[in-house]
């Protein structure tokens, strides 16, 4: 059938392009850094995997690839994908292109939870849990107050409430910083909050990827149904969707994704706002496609942002600085393109 074929055909091309971009950034990211690697050498070592035994030159190259750069690359891809999926999902259920983990307060909330975990020397699992609980609390507060102020689904009320809730949780974070030991804990918390992938280990990743799957798989399976929520919960009900349940599942899953990212890499802003929007620009708003596209695009984006973070100047700059520099002007552009349609 024509209707099906043309659409599937276009999507395949888009997936192919995005997939190539991701593969390209993946390989490129191994080559960025002070240790010089040739592409040939890299491909060879990646092909051999960790199983090969290396000597001399290739042994140190293998260490760089598998011990230093690989965890960081996997983390960048996972976090980029997680934040983008979260952003896409939040935007669909709040019917709001401006919703994102940052603007709804999820990031700040998760940041507070994780900072608290760091302060008390919790292990990774506990930190993840703290981040999730506080992130969830922040999103629910935003949602409830936003609804209370304006029971329709006004964009402005939700976003302004999100900003207020974010500020509140930022203040809680400041309290933690204030109480933290300035010689030990404080620098840890501060550097972690700025967002960075430099200290990520394989054991952090294990836990992150479990959380990633718990959050992402339901959203992937339910992604077509999210389209119905874009018309509001009454229309979704009329279409046969249990709207409240779907909203709740989506909020929980998206917040798990946000919280698990924040717990290992700090608050990395803008990704969850910019990437879903970019994906929609390229392939329309159908979540069957957008969720996959924003996942791939988000992974590639954060990889490249991290490459920039570790190569622009001699010492590393926090990755959230890079994403903000790209995200802020993008947000202004978005505001401009939605002018007159915000309330």
């Amino acid at each position: 059938m024509r209707m099906q074929n043309t659409k599937h055909h276009n999507n395949k091309i888009i997936y192919l392009i995005f997939g190539s971009i991701l593969l390209g950034s993946f390989l490129l990211s191994f080559l960025v850094g002070s240790y010089d690697l040739s592409l040939n050498n890299l491909l060879h070592l990646l092909w051999e995997g960790t199983s090969g035994s290396y000597s001399g030159e290739s042994s140190s190259a293998a260490t760089i690839i598998f011990e230093v750069r690989m965890p960081r690359i996997l983390a960048a891809m996972g976090i980029g994908a997680a934040l983008s999926i979260a952003g896409t999902s939040y935007q669909s259920i709040f019917r709001n292109p401006m919703a994102s983990p940052d603007l709804l307060g999820a990031s700040a909330g998760a940041g507070f939870g994780a900072a608290l975990g760091l302060l008390f020397n919790f292990n990774m699992m506990e930190i993840q849990l703290m981040a999730f609980i506080a992130g969830m609390a922040a999103v629910l507060i935003t949602y409830l107050i936003g609804n209370f102020i304006n029971s329709g689904s006004s964009t402005i009320a939700l976003i302004l409430t999100g900003i207020v809730v974010s500020t509140l949780f930022q203040a809680f974070i400041s309290i933690i910083k204030y109480t933290a030991d300035p010689d030990g804990k404080l620098p840890d918390i501060v550097f972690w909050l700025m967002g960075g992938l430099n200290n990520i280990t394989y054991s952090d990743l294990d836990f992150f990827f479990i959380m990633f799957c718990i959050g992402a798989i339901p959203l992937f399976l339910l992604r077509w149904r999210l389209n119905a929520l874009m018309f509001g919960s009454e229309e979704a009900l009329a279409l046969g969707v249990n709207a409240t349940m779907l909203q709740l599942i989506t909020i929980i899953c998206a917040t798990i994704l946000t919280a698990s990212s924040v717990a290992i890499a700090g608050i990395i802003g803008w990704v969850g706002l910019v990437i879903p929007h970019l994906a929609r620009l390229l392939s329309g708003a159908d979540n069957r496609i957008v969720l996959i596209n924003s996942c791939i695009l988000g992974a590639a984006f954060l990889l490249l942002a991290d490459d920039a973070a570790r190569s622009i100047v001699a010492s590393e700059i926090p990755i959230s600085i890079i994403t903000s520099i790209i995200g802020a002007p993008f947000f202004i552009l978005m505001l401009y393109s939605f002018r007159g349609r915000l309330s």
Partner: peptide, 28 residues
Amino acid sequence: ASRIGYVPQINQHSFSLSVEDVIILGRL
């Protein structure tokens, strides 16, 4: 939903779904 179809008053939403994406939701 399989017995009653509902045609609401038109309200604008912020996402650019195509017409076929919109009507196929009736199959939910």
